[in-house]
């Protein structure tokens, strides 16, 4: 595929210096779960860059190593080959510029909502009382000002996601990594959360890498959508610029002709990969 090679080249050169986040030929190989010294390559030669203030989504079939890419960007996982750069500096250990919103519940169950939001500040040496004072407006911003003293198990799934969002954003990361953060929510809550996230993001543009398997979610929120092939050895195979106007309402924008065009175009490519991925899961 010559056009994909050209695209990769384009990705490599685009804003090389100013990129908030760059992955350079990242390959991740894991020992196979069945042992016996066999290996499994999750992602292969992934190169991408995210400009400051840009909202980029990565879509791909299940098992295509989307989370692996994010873990490399976060510095939680060292790639087998290639490297990650944050603002031009190689990431070694935890990426200090990045905040990470996980797919699963990641709140500390023994801390109240307020204490969870304040945790990041506390870890940065802010005295407890001050950290909690600064956490209060963040709770209000995600609509939970009256729920500060609740523990995670006393909150609904949507509320826990809001707490997690405030927890991630309070420490003001320049890069926000989001791994299917809303996939566990019902569709109404989900659209509310998506709009809230866009509001928060537009107030203070951070670079966002948003992983999802939901193409509509990806298009309605992002500036750019990257398509990942089916694993093993998943590669980036497509890049689409989303030229929809902002501010957006994620529910309404799905009705616009331009959205539908983009959706058709990207889905045409993604569909094949989804089918490939599906065939593989059937095999194993």
């Amino acid at each position: 595929m010559s056009d994909s090679a050209a695209m990769a080249a384009a990705l490599r050169t685009e804003g090389a210096d100013k990129a908030a986040l760059r992955l350079d030929g990242v390959t991740c190989t894991f020992p196979s779960p069945d042992g016996r010294g066999r290996t499994y390559t999750a992602v292969q030669g992934v190169t991408l860059s995210v400009a400051a203030g840009e909202f980029v989504s990565i879509v791909g079939p299940t098992g295509s190593g989307k989370s692996t890419i994010l873990n490399v960007a976060a510095g939680l996982l060292a790639p087998s080959a290639g490297r990650a750069l944050a603002f031009g500096e190689p990431v070694s250990g935890i990426n200090r510029h990045a905040g990470y919103m996980f797919q699963a519940d990641a709140l500390m169950p023994w801390k109240s909502a307020l204490e969870n939001v304040a945790a990041g500040l506390e870890f940065r040496g802010v005295p407890r009382r001050e950290a909690e004072e600064r956490a209060r407006p963040w709770l209000a911003r995600v609509g939970l000002d009256r729920f500060g003293d609740r523990y995670p198990h006393q909150l609904s799934g949507g509320m826990r996601k809001r707490v997690a969002l405030a927890q991630t954003l309070i420490v003001d990361p320049k890069i926000v990594l989001m791994d299917e953060p809303f996939s566990a929510l019902d569709i109404q809550t989900r659209q509310l959360m998506e709009n809230e996230l866009l509001d928060l993001w537009s107030a203070d543009r951070k670079s966002v890498v948003f992983i999802t398997h939901d193409l509509e979610e990806a298009i309605s929120m992002s500036d750019r959508v990257l398509v990942l092939s089916a694993g093993p050895g998943a590669r980036l195979i497509g890049e689409y610029r989303v030229d929809l106007e902002r501010p957006r309402d994620v529910a309404e924008i799905r009705m616009t002709p331009r959205f539908l065009d983009l959706h058709r175009e990207i889905w045409g490519q993604l569909r094949e990969e989804v089918l490939k991925g599906y065939a593989q899961t059937k095999l194993t």
Partner: peptide, 27 residues
């Protein structure tokens, strides 16, 4: 200790001492 809770605390900037006090010990 849930690996996700642990990873989350690390991403929020927890040092080893913080991890002990805020994650391992309560768990």
């Amino acid at each position: 200790v849930s690996p996700v809770v642990l990873a989350n605390a690390k991403m929020l900037g927890a040092s080893n001492r913080h991890l002990f006090r805020h994650v391992y010990l309560p768990s």
